[in-house]
């Protein structure tokens, strides 16, 4: 995958998500995470995100995944729109990361962002509905 992936989220949420990802997919493409702490100066946040973008950008843009629309990590990431080639997708979950880490097709950023948004949404489930004794598809 030639598009870079950067997580921007509260505290160590992004780092921990990457750690869980590496347990399941140890040999996936490099991704990075930036943690945002309360009371952190805006300039510090901006610098940390810029550094993260530089780290993962391989010339094809960066997909930024944030934990929640409207949160500071998301708002700070959005401040780079127009300045850098990036898309921000909010509401990160582990299935999205696994999909990105195992993606065979090399999608451009503009196609990858809506694809992964839909993928993340489809992988939120009432789990009992998937179980075979409840008539779910696993049966």
């Amino acid at each position: 995958m030639s598009v870079g992936v950067l997580i921007v989220a509260h505290y160590r949420l992004g780092e921990e998500m990457l750690q869980a990802l590496r347990l399941i997919v140890p040999d996936g493409p490099p991704m990075a995470a930036v943690g945002i702490a309360p009371n952190q100066a805006v300039d510090d946040m901006h610098t940390a995100i810029a550094s993260g973008l530089d780290e993962v950008d391989r010339g094809q843009g960066v997909l930024v995944l944030t934990d929640m629309f409207g949160g500071t990590p998301s708002n700070m990431a959005l401040s780079f729109l127009g300045e850098r080639r990036l898309e921000v997708v909010t509401g990160l979950n582990l299935p999205m990361l696994i999909k990105l880490a195992t993606l065979q097709e090399d999608m451009p950023l503009e196609k990858l962002a809506p694809f992964i948004e839909g993928y993340g949404q489809r992988n939120i489930s009432v789990a009992s509905a998937l179980l075979p004794d409840r008539g779910g598809k696993a049966g």
């Binding site: 399941i24 997919v25 299935p95 696994i98 999909k99 195992t102 992988n123 998937l130 179980l131 075979p132 779910g136 598809k137 696993a138 049966g139």
Partner: peptide, 20 residues
């Protein structure tokens, strides 16, 4: 598969959806 739909064995999420 576990007797129902065949899942892609090259997709982590497809395998997990079997709830095996």
């Amino acid at each position: 598969s576990r007797g129902g739909e065949w899942m892609n064995g090259k997709s982590v999420l497809s395998i997990l959806s079997l709830a095996a």
